[in-house]
C-alpha cells in the first residue's frame, strides 16, 4: 500500500513536470517576454534588450524553465507586471473564495447526485427515471453560464429572491458563509451542471452493480430492498464515483471561471479572466500550471482513496 502511494506520487511528480514544461513552452511561444507590458508597446529596442538581460529573459528557454520550476518549488509563481504584485500573493488572496465556491458546489452536487443515481437505477425505465435522465441530458448540454443567466433572469431579476451578482462586500470566505443568499445562485449553477454528469455515472454504476449476483444473493438472504441498497449496493456503486470526482477537477476549475465571471465574484477564476484580457502571461502561466497540479493531485487522491475503499486493490 505504501509502495503503491509512493509509486503514484513519483508518477504524479513526473506528470506535473511535464505539464509545467508543455505549458511553459506554449506560453513562451505566445509571449517570450513580458517586457512590453512593463516598458510599454513602443519601448526602445535597446531598453527592451537591457530589461530582458536584467530579468533573465535572454537566456535559452530551457534555462528559463528550470529557473521557473525552481521558483515554483519555493512557492514563487512569478510576478504580475500588470497588477504589480506577485502571482503567489494574488492567488493567496483569491483562492479561498474560489475554493469555497467549488467545494460547496461539489458537496452539494454529490449529495444530490448519489441518491438520485441510485433511485434512477432502482426505478429504471420509469417515468421518473426518464424525466431525470432527460433533464440531465439538457443540463449536460447547456453551457453553465447560460444556465446561470436563466437563473438570474427568474430568481434574481423577475422574482428578486437572490442578488444577480455577488456583492463586492463579500471579500472573505467567512463573509460568503454568513451571507448565504449572496452565493446561492453561483453554487447552485455550478452544482447543477455537475449533478447532470455525476448522476448519469452513478446511475450506470448502480445499474452495473444491480445486475451482479451479490445483489440477488443479498435479496435471497431476505434483506429488504432498503437494506440491500444501503448495505450492499451503495459502497460498491460509489467506488467508480471516487475516480470520477478526482477527474472532474478541470471541469470544476473551468466552471469556476465562467461562474465567477458571470456573477462577478472575485476568485481566482475572475483573476484569470482579467489576466486574459490584459495578456498578463505570468498569471496565465501560473494558473494553468496550478490547474494542472490540482488535476494531478485530484487523480492521485482518487487513486489512493479507491485503493483504500476497495479491498480488492488494497489487499491485492
Amino acid at each position: 500500500m505504501i509502495g503503491f502511494v509512493i509509486r503514484r506520487l513519483a508518477v504524479a511528480v513526473l506528470v506535473t513536470l511535464g505539464i509545467a514544461l508543455v505549458t511553459f513552452l506554449l506560453l513562451h511561444i505566445l509571449s517570450p517576454s513580458p517586457v512590453y507590458a512593463v516598458l510599454g508597446a513602443k519601448a526602445e529596442p535597446a531598453a527592451v534588450k537591457a530589461w530582458n538581460l536584467q530579468h533573465g529573459y535572454d537566456r535559452p528557454v530551457l534555462a528559463q524553465f528550470l529557473t521557473y520550476i525552481g521558483n515554483i518549488i519555493h512557492g514563487d509563481f512569478g510576478y504580475s507586471y500588470k497588477l504589480s504584485q506577485s502571482v503567489t500573493a494574488l492567488f493567496r488572496e483569491h483562492s479561498g473564495r474560489s475554493a469555497y465556491l467549488s467545494g460547496s458546489a461539489l458537496v452539494l452536487s454529490l449529495l444530490i447526485a448519489l441518491p438520485l443515481g441510485i433511485a434512477q437505477a432502482v426505478r429504471r425505465n420509469s417515468i421518473g427515471d426518464y424525466t431525470v435522465t432527460s433533464l440531465n441530458f439538457i443540463l449536460y448540454s447547456m453551457p453553465s453560464f447560460f444556465l446561470g443567466l436563466i437563473l438570474i433572469q427568474f430568481l434574481a431579476l423577475d422574482w428578486g429572491v437572490f442578488p444577480p451578482v455577488v456583492s463586492d462586500q463579500i471579500t472573505t470566505v467567512w463573509g460568503a458563509f454568513t451571507h448565504p443568499l449572496q452565493l446561492t445562485l453561483p453554487i447552485v449553477t455550478l452544482a447543477a451542471i455537475n449533478v447532470a454528469s455525476f448522476s448519469r455515472y452513478m446511475r450506470s454504476s448502480a445499474l452495473d452493480n444491480l445486475a451482479q449476483d451479490y445483489i440477488r444473493l443479498a435479496r435471497a438472504k431476505g434483506l429488504s430492498q432498503r437494506a440491500v441498497l444501503t448495505r450492499h449496493l451503495l459502497r460498491n456503486a460509489c467506488l467508480p464515483m471516487i475516480t470520477l470526482v478526482g477527474l472532474s477537477i478541470p471541469y470544476l476549475l473551468a466552471g469556476n471561471l465562467l461562474i465567477e465571471v458571470l456573477f462577478n465574484y472575485s476568485g481566482i477564476g475572475l483573476l484569470f479572466y482579467t489576466a486574459l484580457g490584459n495578456l498578463d502571461y505570468n498569471v496565465l502561466l501560473a494558473y494553468v500550471i496550478a490547474g494542472g497540479i490540482l488535476t494531478v493531485l485530484g487523480n492521485l487522491i482518487a487513486d489512493v482513496a479507491v485503493a483504500v475503499a476497495d479491498p480488492r486493490i488494497r489487499l491485492g
Partner: peptide, 22 residues
C-alpha cells in the same frame, strides 16, 4: 501515452483560452 497523460492533465478550457488570446 505518458505524453497524453500530461496533456490531459492540463485543464482544457484554460489552455484553450490562453491560446485564444492570440
Amino acid at each position: 501515452m505518458r505524453f497524453v497523460d500530461i496533456l490531459l492533465s492540463i485543464p482544457f478550457l484554460l489552455i484553450v483560452l490562453v491560446l485564444a488570446t492570440k
